[in-house]
Nucleic acid binder design. Structure first.
Lengths: 238, 238
DNA sequence: CGGCCTTTTGATCCTCTTCAATGGTGGTGG
DNA sequence: CCACCACCATTGAAGAGGATCAAAAGGCCG
C-alpha cells in the first residue's frame, strides 16, 4: 500500500531493526519533519493529486481520509489503499504521480515539498534510512494485501479488511471494535477485487452470523474479533 | 515484488528522477557494490534462505532462477515473485526473513552482508537513495501485480505474466519472443492466484488460438505479442 | 414529500475450482 | 538398454463461488 503509519507497523512490532541499532531515543522521524510543513484543507471528493501530475509533495494525512486509486485501460477502477490520520502518502520514487488521491471526507494534509525531503535525505543518512524503512513497510503491507486478494475468498477478504481497520484503531488508541467506514461499498469492492454486491452481501452475512453489527453503512461494530480472526485465517465461513 | 532489476525499470524508462538531478555519470549503483561481494552456488530446489531466518545478506542473482514464496496458515502457498539474473533479492527492512527463497534451477548469487550495506548507506547518502529507489521500484511492480490479480481474468493474468517475462528478455537484450519457464505450472499458479489446471488450460487455449507455441513445458514462443498485449489490456479473449 | 443515489436483496449465469483420469517425461535400477 | 515408477502436465466432467442483471429499500437533500 502507499499509505502507512510512520511510527508503527501494522502489527505494532518494531520494524527494520537491522537498520536501527543507532540511537533510538534521539531518533529522527519523518513525521517530526512533516509536522512542521504547510497544512492544506481538501473538500470531500476533491483530489489531492491525480495521475500524470508532476510530483511535488509528500503528504501526511492530519485528519480525514484519502482514497488512492488507479483507473485501468478498460475503465475498471482499482483502489490501491486508503490513508487515514497519521498515514504518509506519495513516498514513491518517480517524477510524476502514477495514481490518484481523492479525499473521501473533508480532509487536512501536511505538505512537505519533495525537494525538501530530498535535501533532508542527502544531509542526514538517518533520514534516508527512515524513508527506506517507510517504503519497505509499505511494500510489506502491499504484499500482505496481494496474498489476501490472490488466495482468499470474498468473506476472508472482507474480514481481513475489517480487522486491518480495527488494528489501525488499536494503534491509535481508539476502540478496536468500532469501525468507521468513510469510503463507499464501491471503494471497498475496488480495494478487495470484488463487486459492490458481494461486499454488501458479505456484510449482511457477517451481520446475521452475529459477528458484526451495522447501524449506518458508514459505521459498524466488530462483535466477536476472535471469531473474525479465525475466518481471516481460513478456518470457517470460507 | 521482491526482486527487481537495479539498473532498469520494467518498462525501460528512467525511474526516480526526482532524486536523480545529481551527477548521473558518476552515479553509484547498488550492483557495482554487490558485484564485488562473495559468490555462492545453490543447487536446484535448495533454499537461499527460509522464513524465520535471521536476515544476513542481500543477494543478487548472477545466473539461474529463484522463487520467493510464503506459506499461509492454512497450508496454501503464495509465490511472491521470481528472481532471475540481475535481480536483487532481500532488500526489505526487518531483522528476520519473512518469506522463503528457493532456487528453481542451479543458481549462483552474490551475497552482500546487510551490515556492509548499512555502512554504505550511512556513509553515502547517494547509496541510501539508491536503496530507496530500488525498493520503490519493487513496490511499484508489486502494485501492478496486485491490480492484475485483483481485477484480471485468468487469461489476462497468464498473458500479463508472459509479457512481463518477455519484457525482461528485451531489457537483457535477449529474444522477447522466446520465453524460458524454469518454474513449474504450480509455481505460476501460486504466483497468479490460480490453480495448476487453470494455468495449463489457459496455455492450451493460447496455443490453439495460435498466439503462442509450446515445445516443452519449460519453454515457449510468443507468436503474436501485439495480440497478447491486447488481451492483457482486457480487449479480447477475456 | 419527492427524486436521486447508495445499499441491499434476489435470480441467473459464467468462470474458475475441484475432483478424477490420462498422458508425458525423466530418473533409476534391473 | 530398456522397463518401471514417480512426478508433472494436460484434459475432462461436475460443482461452487462470485459476477452480472434486475429490482426493491433505505438515506439524504432539495
Amino acid at each position: 500500500m502507499l499509505a502507512f503509519s510512520a511510527e508503527h507497523t501494522p502489527d505494532g512490532k518494531a520494524n527494520g531493526i537491522a537498520w536501527r541499532n543507532s540511537d533510538l531515543m534521539t531518533r529522527t522521524t519523518l513525521t517530526s519533519h512533516i509536522r512542521r510543513s504547510q497544512l492544506k484543507g481538501i473538500e470531500a471528493k476533491d483530489h489531492v493529486f491525480v495521475e500524470g501530475d508532476q510530483k511535488s509533495h509528500v503528504y501526511q494525512v492530519e485528519t480525514g481520509a484519502v482514497c488512492l486509486y488507479t483507473v485501468l485501460p478498460d475503465g475498471r477502477r482499482h483502489v490501491i489503499d486508503f490513508a487515514f490520520g497519521g498515514d504518509i502518502v506519495n513516498l514513491d520514487a518517480g517524477p510524476v504521480e502514477v495514481y490518484n488521491a481523492q479525499a473521501l471526507i473533508p480532509t487536512r494534509v501536511r505538505c512537505l515539498p519533495q525537494t525538501a525531503l530530498r535535501r533532508l535525505a542527502e544531509r542526514e543518512p538517518e533520514m534516508a534510512i527512515r524513508i527506506y524503512e517507510a517504503i519497505a513497510e509499505e511494500l510489506s503491507s502491499t504484499r500482505a494485501h496481494l496474498v489476501s486478494v490472490a488466495r482468499h475468498s470474498a468473506t476472508e477478504r472482507v474480514v481481513t479488511f475489517l480487522l486491518s481497520m480495527s488494528r489501525r484503531n488499536r494503534i491509535h488508541d481508539r476502540d478496536p471494535q468500532t469501525i468507521d467506514l468513510p469510503m463507499s461499498r464501491g471503494d471497498i469492492a475496488d480495494y478487495l477485487g470484488l463487486t459492490i454486491e458481494t461486499v454488501s452481501r458479505t456484510f449482511s452475512k457477517l451481520k446475521s452470523a452475529g459477528l458484526i453489527e451495522i447501524d449506518q453503512c458508514t459505521s459498524l461494530r466488530l462483535v466477536d474479533i476472535a471469531a473474525l480472526k479465525a475466518i481471516a485465517d481460513g478456518e470457517a465461513l470460507a
